[in-house]
Design a protein around this nucleic acid. Structure first.
Ligand SMILES: [Mn+2]
Ligand SMILES: [Mn+2]
Ligand SMILES: [Zn+2]
Ligand SMILES: [Zn+2]
Lengths: 146, 146
DNA sequence: TATAAAAAAGCAACAATGTTGCAAAAGATA
DNA sequence: TATCTTTTGCAACATTGTTGCTTTTTTATA
């Protein structure tokens, strides 16, 4: 390990990667750590900034992609076109996401939160439409910015 | 008017532009027409393809931007990073959007609809969070694809 | 309708973001 | 440790978005 990437929580990281059949590499540990030590979600740009000194841009793209595929992280819809990612809970796995919580974006600090305890509401659709997944994003002021 | 841009619904278009204090130009008429003759929403890419032969890419960006600013169209959040736009209803105006409907994306045909009659639900947030605007995007199968 | 002022469009150049193929390096396995 | 497999970095490229400036179009007014 020639590069000096400081990894905390190493055991947890390795366990999570192994569970998902991923080999343990510096970039995966580093990027996964960013999510673990973070309250809210991360925009692609943030991740690239924080991990980008050590790792190639392409590696960041590929790492995020594989994390989404494996059900380790999920994307969060936004109205500007920036992709945001956050850790999934245990129910998600390879090829199937089951994230049924809502998301909250703070007007003030711009943090995006997964509100894991707020379940997405039932939506009554017009005749002819059948619902699959429902995404809810609430914009407002967060607990730290009141 | 040397360019042969065919505009239907010209009166409606002109009225809408004038109402919003915009001068009447070919590109604005053409792009606005795309929205009027369309059931669903339009991705930026679609608009650029459909209007891009006649108009510069930059003009498309600037036109969409000013339409959003004036409350003529609104953006729709997506998880992939593509921006989608749809016409606003009458309540929207310069500097204030009041789009309280939900959006529906068809898995099959990939059309995005504004479901104007489905009102966004009340969301009960955890202590400390205060809600502003709520965005709901439902993914499923649309009326034409059942 | 002709003219002047204001606004918008087009163009070019650039920045940022995302993708692909391939050789080198690192990781897993025995 | 040796071998095989996977991942990384790099380079090159494509796509998307932005900015300043000149020309053209639109609007307002005589
Ligand atoms: Mn989430
Ligand atoms: Mn809408
Ligand atoms: Zn906040
Ligand atoms: Zn459909």
């Amino acid at each position: 390990m020639p590069k000096e990437v400081v990894i905390v929580n190493n055991n947890k990281l390795i366990k999570l990667l192994k569970q998902n059949g991923l080999s343990i590499t510096d970039s995966r540990r580093k990027i996964l750590q960013l999510f673990l030590e973070q309250d809210g979600a991360l925009a692609h740009g943030d991740i690239e900034k924080k991990a980008g000194e050590k790792f190639d841009r392409v590696t960041v793209y590929r790492t995020l992609q594989i994390f989404v595929d494996k059900g380790i992280i999920h994307t969060i819809p936004t109205a500007d076109n920036s992709i945001r990612y956050a850790l999934c809970k245990d129910e998600c796995g390879e090829g199937h996401h089951h994230d049924h919580h809502i998301h909250f974006v703070c007007d003030n600090c711009n943090t995006t939160y997964c509100l894991d305890d707020v379940v997405t509401p039932e939506i009554k659709l017009p005749k002819g439409y059948s619902a699959g997944h429902v995404e809810v994003v609430v914009e407002g002021v967060c607990k730290n910015c009141q």
